[in-house]
Structure formats: C-alpha cells, structure tokens
Amino acid sequence: MKKTFLAKRNALLSSRSASWGALALTTALGVLFLRLLAPNLFWQAFAPVFRVSDALATESHSFSDRFGNAAALASLNEKLVERNASLANENAALVQKVANLSELLGASGVQSGSSGILAGVIARPPESPYDVLVVGAGENEGVALGMEAFGAADVPLGVVSSVLADVSRVTLFSAPGMTTNASVGRANVPLTLTGAGAGAMNASVARTAGVAVGDTVFVPGPGMLPIGSVVRIDSDPLSPGVTLRIKPAFNLFSTAWVELRATGAVSTVFATSTP
C-alpha cells in the first residue's frame, strides 16, 4: 500500500530555505568566528581580497566619473578653453618679448658686449621719480655717466644721470626741464625738445617749417634715431612759431629692459642737478 508522505510545512526548516541560504550563513558565521578568534589569520587571508576590491573601486569610480556630471564636464571644458586661449595670449606675449630682447641684444644674447650694456628696469614711475628709470646696471657693469639708454627698436629713452655700483638712474628725455637737440620731418628741421613730464615732450619751431601732425622726430645717434612723433600742433596767432606736442615712440614707462650705450651724439642738458 502506498504511503502518503506529508511534509511538515515549516518555512524556517523547509529543505528549500535550508539549502543555499543556510550554507552561506554557515560560511559567514565561519568567517566571523575566524575574525574573532584569529584576527591576524583573518586579515592575512582577506588582505588580497581587499586590495582587489580597492583597485576595482578605483577603476569603477574613474570610469563612472567620466559620465558623472555632464554639466561639470562642460564647465570644465569651457574653463580649459579659456585657459588655453589665455595661455596662447601669454605665449604670444612671451614670443614678442623674446623678439624684442633679441632685437635689443642684436641676437647676441649677452649681457654686456661691444654694442652696449643690457640692463633690466628695476623701478619705473610711480615707483621712481617721474620720468626716471632705475636700471639694474652700474659701475660694476661698466655704466658711465652720460650714456644713452635705448629701448626696443633702438628708440632712445634718456640719458644716464646717476651711476652707483650696481644701479643707475636714467633720466628720460621727457623729464621736465630736460632739453635735447633733435630734428623733425623729412626736411630734418632742427629743434630743441623740452621735457614736459609724464613721457611727453614739447618743441617750438617756426610756423613756416611745414611740420605736420604725424611727423617723426629724430635725435642724432648712429644714424637718425626716431624718438617720437608729433601728435598735436598748438598755434598761437600772436607768435611766429608753433608748439609741437610730441609723443614717445612707445610707452616709456612699460619698458622692462634698456640698453645703455655711450654714443656721445646726443647733446642733452639737465635742468636739474644730478646727484
């Protein structure tokens, strides 16, 4: 006679729930006891597992970060583009600086040579007195009183008015009261430049000289050296002459390097006493 087996329906002790779950729970309890009873053995056994886990977590984080925040990535991309443009501009400025220095040095790259003495500008207005540059070369470098200072493209800037051991003072042609012989225009009309301060110069010429706005003003040197250009002509009907307002060839107060040379060609009169 066939027996009917009625299994007791107990959810906790049924054969289905006691299979894999119970086996896993037993394993977990075994690991727990291992940690409690033999912690050193436990950490030694699981150290490689933790290392693999850390490596996997690092990789997964780096992978998910790539897609993490599109807005942040777009913002970062925008910042990088701006930074790239900024660096490109900076690079262009540096290239220009190198070109200016090379031109100033005659591509020789030496600090001191037969062509002149290269000196960095230590102080410029308003750090130094107006229309005065303090440069980092002095007697030790061979600077002498009366040497002429040239900027980029051989533009005359001023004259060394004071020399110390390691520094010198260059009084610019635009210093108030400083007079310099020069010429203007294609006809090389001679005139006397008078410093007007703040980088500007004035000169008086006859009304009939035919000087026009934009004419270049030269000072004697090795050839004719452009020092600036006429930007305005003030005319007084009661006077037979006109006053020329002359702007330097470039911003005298932004130059970083000057070259000092003893030309002996510029006749300059200092209105103020030199120390």
């Binding site: 729930s17 779950g21 896993a24 977990a28 727990l32």
Partner: peptide, 15 residues
C-alpha cells in the same frame, strides 16, 4: 533565499 540578507549583513560587518 530569505537567509541571504542576514548572511550578507553578517558577512559585511565581519569584513
């Protein structure tokens, strides 16, 4: 498997 959450929790705390 009803025992899996308990097992995983116990295993996680063990680690």
């Amino acid at each position: 498997e009803p025992l899996v959450p308990l097992t995983v929790g116990l295993f996680s705390d063990t680690l």
